[in-house]
Design a protein around this nucleic acid. Structure first.
Lengths: 166, 166
DNA sequence: ACTATGTTTCATTATTTATTGAAAGTTTAG
DNA sequence: CTAAACTTTCAATAAATAATGAAACATAGT
C-alpha cells in the first residue's frame, strides 16, 4: 500500500471510531490528519485534504484546541495559522481521559450524589438507594482511576497494564 | 425528593450520559428504567413511562438484549413479554466493556495492523509507521485490559483500583 | 486610512440518526 | 380454523447534529 493511501485509510478509520464514541467525525479526522502529517497544516491544507469547508475546519480545530489535543503554531514570516497535534499516543489518551472525566464522569457523579437524599424508608426506596450507592461507588472508582491515569507519568499505563496482566 | 421524581431524574441523566458516549438516548433510558424498577416491565409499561412508541421500545429492548444488558422474562400465565435488567453494576460494566471491545476496539486494531505493511523506506513512511506502531501498542494494551476486566471475577475492578491507588 | 490577507461567526442547508405508527407477522386459546 | 393478543418490521417522518458559505471581523503592511 502507498503511504498516501495508508494515511487516508487511517484518517477514515479514526473518524469512524471517534464517531461511535460520540465525537464528531470531522473533528476526529482533523486530529488524525494532523497526527500523520509531518509539517504543521494551515486551515486551507485541512480544507483541501478532507474536503470540508473553512467554517467547519475552524470550529473543529477550535474544539480540538479546547480538548488540548491540537495547538496553533506560528510560522515566522507567515500570516497564516498552522496547526499541529501531539504524536505521543499516551499523551493523547491522557488528554482525552481528562476531558471526558471532567465533562461526563464528574457530572454523573454529582447527579448520583444529589439523588441519594431521596426520602422514604420503604423497601422500594431502599432498593433504589442501594442501586444508586453501588453505582456511585463504581463511578467514583472509574473517576479515581482516570484521575490517576491523567496525573501519572508517561509510562504509568504501560507499567500498570503489565502489572495487571500478570 | 420523592422516589418517583428521583427515579425520573436518574433516567434522564443516564440517557444523557449514554448519548454523549454514542449510545442512543432511548436505549440508555430503557436500561435505566429497568434498573430502577422492582418488577419486570412490559413493552407497554415502558412506552407509557418514557412516552415513546411501541416500535422504538421494541428496537431498543432488542439492542439491549444484544448487548446482554436486558433479558426477557416470561411471567407464568401472562402472554405479554416482560423485561428485566441486571442490577449488579459491575456486571453491567463488564457487559458494556465486552461489547465495545468487540465492536470498536478490535476493529481499529485490525485496521492499524493492516496498515503496518505500507511500503516505502523514506523518513516520512518511517514516521508514519512509528505512529502506527505506538498506537497499535497502546490499543493492544487497552484491549488486554478490557479483556482482563471482562473475564475477571466480580470484584476484580474494585481490588485493582485499590491496588493502583496505593 | 485603505487594502490585502486571513479568521471567526452564525443563519441556512444538508446529512445523519432516531422515532413513529400502521401493516404484516406470530402465537395462543377456544 | 379463527379471532384475539401481542410482537416485529419498515417506509415515512421528525429531530438532532454537522457542514456550508458568505458576511462580519481582525490585523498587518503600505
Amino acid at each position: 500500500m502507498e503511504l498516501k493511501e495508508a494515511k487516508a485509510e487511517f484518517i477514515q478509520a479514526w473518524g469512524t471510531l471517534g464517531n461511535s464514541w460520540g465525537i464528531n467525525r470531522t473533528m476526529s479526522q482533523i486530529h488524525a490528519l494532523l497526527i500523520v502529517s509531518n509539517e504543521p497544516l494551515s486551515t486551507e491544507d485541512i480544507m483541501e485534504q478532507l474536503k470540508v469547508s473553512r467554517g467547519n475546519v475552524n470550529m473543529n480545530t477550535r474544539a480540538l484546541m479546547d480538548w488540548g489535543l491540537v495547538k496553533k503554531q506560528l510560522i515566522p514570516g507567515e500570516r497564516k495559522e498552522y496547526f499541529t497535534a501531539g504524536k505521543d499516543i499516551n499523551e493523547v489518551a491522557r488528554q482525552i481521559a481528562k476531558e471526558r472525566k471532567r465533562r461526563e464522569v464528574e457530572p454523573i457523579l454529582d447527579v448520583i450524589k444529589s439523588l441519594e437524599d431521596v426520602k422514604g424508608k420503604d423497601a422500594e426506596t431502599e432498593e433504589f438507594k442501594k442501586v444508586l450507592s453501588e453505582l456511585g461507588d463504581f463511578t467514583g472508582k472509574v473517576n479515581s482511576a482516570l484521575d490517576k491515569f491523567v496525573r501519572s507519568d508517561r509510562n504509568w499505563f504501560t507499567k500498570t497494564v503489565m502489572r495487571l496482566m500478570t
